[in-house]
């Protein structure tokens, strides 16, 4: 069923990491990504890998799932690896025609690929363990100091969560419109690219009209339920740090501290 689609890549289990406050996970991921750029030695990489594996094990997300997070960046990985491998000057150990491999190149390739992989795995671990709703909530709270400079943080978060609610509904509607247009003889399969894009027009126009109509009705419904912006609003489930969240913060800072102080 089209309604069953999940947005993002949340993997639902009951692990310690899943129960952490989303703010801890967002801040932790951010710290981890920064930490990846603070070292350039083997011990640093081993430490970062060990830390990631520890968190991943705690999260109970199977490794095959985590590896899936790498799929969209495979091309970039191969591309950067190839660039580094063939174009790093240094002591050559193999040459064949114009191809020349150097020890420096191999080292650089391995490290840069590792860094990229850890970067992607680290951030996808966050999306695997946090629902889109929690992410929105966490971002709203983390960014709330920006309200002081009049950035509409609450409104942006509200927009994000409404978008998340309506994506499956609009996908279903697209499907319905496509079938309705196909029944009237519309052809989405043949023709060249431009032709096909033109053929999509009878889908997009009704879809936009309906989305705008829905938005109007939703706004009325929100008005009727006394919505008046973020001011004076309370939360049914306010984000509250528990002991485990504070411990998790401590672990993150401990990790970054060790990296900065002891690892070259």
């Amino acid at each position: 069923m089209i309604r069953d689609i999940t947005i993002g890549q949340y993997y639902s289990t009951d692990s310690l990491i899943h129960h952490l406050d989303p703010r801890v996970k967002i801040a932790g991921t951010f710290l981890y990504i920064i930490s990846l750029f603070t070292f350039h030695s083997l011990s640093g990489y081993l430490f970062a890998i060990a830390f990631f594996c520890g968190v991943a094990a705690l999260s109970q997300v199977p490794f095959s799932y985590l590896a899936r997070g790498l799929r969209p960046v495979i091309f970039m990985l191969v591309f950067t690896a190839a660039l580094n491998l063939f174009w790093t000057p240094g002591e050559s150990f193999f040459s064949w025609g114009i191809i020349e491999l150097t020890w420096e190149g191999v080292e650089k390739t391995v490290f840069i690929s590792l860094r990229l992989i850890l970067l992607v795995l680290g951030s996808s671990l966050m999306t695997f363990t946090t629902t889109p709703n929690q992410l929105t909530d966490g971002l709203e709270r983390l960014l709330s100091p920006l309200k002081a400079i009049r950035l509409p943080i609450h409104e942006i978060a509200m927009m994000m969560s409404i978008a998340l609610r309506f994506i499956p509904i609009l996908i279903e509607e697209t499907d319905k419109i496509m079938k309705a247009q196909a029944a009237r003889g519309a052809d989405f399969e043949t023709g060249n690219l431009i032709q096909r894009i033109k053929n999509m027009l009878p889908i997009f126009i009704p879809l936009f009209v309906s989305a705008i109509r829905r938005a109007g009705e939703l706004a009325l419904a929100m008005d009727a339920r006394c919505y008046h912006g973020g001011k004076g609003r309370t939360k049914m489930y306010p984000l509250q740090y528990r002991l485990t969240d504070l411990l998790a913060y401590a672990v993150c800072f401990f990790y970054v501290g060790i990296l900065i102080i002891f690892v070259p």
Binding site: R165, A221, R225, C226, T234
Partner: peptide, 30 residues
């Protein structure tokens, strides 16, 4: 007020959070 289209008046992704939307707006304690 309850409106005609059921889809266009539910704001949240979770049933209970949607029911809580009104009281949240009114500033009722958690």
């Amino acid at each position: 007020m309850v409106f005609q289209n059921p889809d266009n008046q539910i704001i949240s992704n979770v049933v209970e959070e949607d029911v809580g939307f009104g009281p949240e707006n009114l500033g009722v304690p958690t």
